[in-house]
Amino acid sequence: MNLKDLGSGESKLETTISYLLIIGVALSLALEIAGIAIFYKSHGNLDILLQDKAMFIQGRDFFSFLYQLFARGPMQNTGIFLMTLGVAALILTPFVRVIVSAMYFAWKRDARYTLITAFVLVATTVSLALH
């Protein structure tokens, strides 16, 4: 049995998406675990802080949130910064997957699926930009 003969007939795309998801998930996990470790070192416990405003992340929309995150950098608390980066990596993973899919179908000159993935990409981008 060859995996290339299975699936939806888009073996290259499936392999690319699979690696993309593994990288996104692994990066997110690593950042969040590192962030929690530093958080523990600075706070001395692993309590969930429901009232602490410093623990809440916010942005005008997803893209400005990303911009502010990288523009500001780890100014005050590296643990919080890494956890935020981890969440951002997690949220970005499916979005990047759609970008890659649209590019793949355009490269393959598959008009039907280029249009379908482009529609999904535009709709997602607009919903992320308009919060």
């Binding site: 969930i48 809440f56 916010q58 949130f65 919060h131």
Partner: peptide, 13 residues
Amino acid sequence: LFSGLLNLTLVAP
């Protein structure tokens, strides 16, 4: 995210 409801001590774990 816009509403500021994502608490890192909840979301990360």
